[in-house]
Each structure stands twice: as C-alpha cells, then as structure tokens.
Deep mutational scan, measured.
Amino acid sequence: GSVVKEKKEKALIEVRPYVEYYNELKALVSKISSSVNDLEEAIVVLREEEKKASEPFKTDIRILLDFLES
C-alpha cells in the first residue's frame, strides 16, 4: 500500500520536468491508484490508458511508465 503510493508519488515528482500534462497525469495516477492493489496492476492499467491516449499525453504516460518500471 504505502510503498506503492510512495513509488508513484516519487515517480510523479521525477517526471514532472519532462511531461507536458502534469496535472492530467497526476489525476490519472490518482484515479488508477484507487482501483488497483499494487504497482504491477497500476502499470498494466497505465499501459491500457497509453494505448487510448493521443499525443502528447501518450508520451507523458510513457515517460511515467519508464520511471515506474525502472
């Protein structure tokens, strides 16, 4: 629970300088966080969101995924 939350919060802070739609990304992460149990599940849902998103938000999600998977 809290470790996953920390990882996601740290990821958002780390990617902030590189993303165009930070507030939207943060809102998406919050929405996903409330419906998943762990980081792996969150990553799966983020990948689905990435497929549906259009640029440049798609790239923002990709940047976040790269950080979460590192």
Rank of each mutant, 00 (worst) to 15 (best):
K58V: 04
E55G: 09
V15C: 15
E6K: 06
K31E: 13
R62H: 14
L12K: 01
L64F: 15
I43C: 08
P56M: 04
I63D: 01
Y22L: 04
D38H: 09
E41M: 09
L64A: 02
E9T: 06
V44K: 12
L25Q: 00
R16C: 15
Y18H: 15
S2I: 08
D38C: 07
E48Y: 07
D60F: 14
K58L: 03
K5D: 14
I13N: 13
D66A: 11
S35Q: 13
V15F: 02
L28K: 01
V29R: 00
E50F: 10
A27G: 05
K5Q: 14
R47H: 13
F57Y: 05
R16I: 15
Y18W: 05
S2V: 10
K8F: 15
G1E: 12
R16K: 15
S34G: 10
V29C: 10
E41W: 04
V36I: 07
E9V: 06
E55A: 05
A11W: 12
E9N: 07
E20C: 15
F57M: 03
L65F: 01
L25A: 00
E6L: 01
V44W: 09
R16M: 15
V3K: 13
E9Q: 07
K5W: 04
L39S: 05
S30R: 05
F67E: 06
L12Y: 02
L28A: 01
N37W: 06
I32T: 04
E24S: 03
I63G: 02
E49V: 05
L65N: 02
E55R: 03
P56E: 06
V15S: 03
I63H: 03
P56D: 04
K52F: 08
F67R: 05
S54M: 09
K51P: 02
E20F: 07
I61A: 00
L46W: 01
E48W: 08
E24P: 00
E14C: 15
A11F: 05
A11K: 03
E9W: 05
E48K: 08
Y21R: 03
L25Y: 01
E20P: 01
K5N: 14
P17I: 15
K58C: 04
S35L: 10
E14T: 07
Y22M: 03
S54F: 11
V44N: 11
E9G: 04
I61N: 00
S2N: 13
F57C: 02
N23L: 14
E49M: 03
R47F: 05
I61S: 00
S70W: 06
Y18N: 15
E14M: 04
Y22E: 03
A11S: 04
S30D: 15
K58T: 03
K58W: 02
V36N: 06
K31Q: 13
G1R: 03
D38S: 13
D66T: 12
L39Q: 05
K5L: 13
A27N: 09
Y22G: 02
D66N: 09
S2K: 07
E50V: 08
D38I: 09
I32D: 03
Y18S: 14
